[in-house]
């Protein structure tokens, strides 16, 4: 009897070697990565600047914060919302054909493989590159930002749309056939209602993300609150930095809360 137990004990696959190997690889990667860390901080400047930033956030530039002209925080935030909103809407619309072309249940294998590759490429190119390219199209300003967001949204949104498309319940199509419905009626009343709630939920989620990403666009002159933030930082106006950061954080928190509520309602009905 005990022999059998011993036999069973030895049967258990030993994963020790695998774990050691994996641990070794990670450790080696870690050591290699550590070489990237260089402290080139200005001798004492770092701590002082950190202190200044905190001071700036604690005593923000109230004039800038409560300024309702086109230079004020409110207008800049509103402009950022507009960029993110339009970018999300156009991005979501552009994602629909991409999503159908990526769905294995809709198109043959070569088509969806090619579309998937294309979307990976679109997704990997940094938004800044698109931003600079679009600035050449529309000139600097929020318009370029909208175009950039539209394009960068496609990557994630279409990928998530595909899952929804693959999840469609096809039973309804048979039922509608039995009712004497045309193909158009089947799509309009059978398929679209199934897609719309999840598509909307995904789109709202992406809007949430785009709002954060919209700050990047300021770097290349594509509008939004990013550029005044960078100007303020580069010229060491920490109180202005403080008021912009506060406005941004509050906006993002509010939008996140609303978006979570909306999405829960959409999905659960």
């Amino acid at each position: 009897m005990s022999e059998m137990i011993e036999l069973k004990l030895n049967e258990q696959p030993s994963k020790k070697r695998q774990y050691l190997l994996l641990g070794g690889i990670i450790l080696a990667m870690l050591l290699w990565s550590l070489t990237a860390i260089t402290f080139s901080a200005p001798d004492d400047g770092g701590a002082k600047i950190a202190g200044n930033i905190i001071k700036g956030i604690l005593s923000p530039d109230m004039q800038l914060l409560w300024n309702f002209t086109s230079q004020g925080v409110f207008y800049l935030l509103f402009e950022t919302i507009c960029i993110a909103f339009l970018g999300t809407i156009f991005g979501a619309i552009l994602s629909i054909p991409f999503a159908f072309l990526m769905a294995p249940s809709v198109v043959p294998k070569p088509v969806y493989l090619i579309t998937r590759f294309l979307v990976v490429v679109i997704r990997t190119i940094p938004s800044l590159v698109y931003g600079l390219m679009f600035v050449r199209v529309s000139g600097p300003g929020p318009f370029a930002g909208v175009l950039t967001m539209s394009l960068t949204s496609i990557g994630m949104v279409s990928k998530l749309y595909v899952d929804v498309i693959e999840d469609i319940d096809r039973g309804i199509l048979e039922a509608m056939d039995a009712m004497g419905c045309t193909t158009f009626e089947k799509i309009r009343f059978g398929i679209i209602p199934q897609l719309i709630a999840n598509f909307s939920s995904i789109t709202i989620y992406r809007f949430d993300m785009n709002l954060r990403d919209a700050t990047i666009l300021g770097l290349v002159g594509a509008g939004g609150i990013g550029s005044p933030l960078i100007f303020a930082m580069n010229s060491y106006r920490w109180h202005q930095v403080g008021s912009i950061l506060i406005g941004l954080v509050v906006l993002i928190l509010i939008v996140e809360a609303i978006s979570n509520k909306l999405r829960a309602k959409l999905v659960n009905g």
Binding site: D169, G171, I172, E174, A175, A178, M179, F189, G190, P193, Q194, I196, A197, G269
Partner: peptide, 13 residues
Amino acid sequence: IGMIFQSFNLITR
């Protein structure tokens, strides 16, 4: 002609 299915085949959502 009405038709009823085992899996109901309703439009979800």
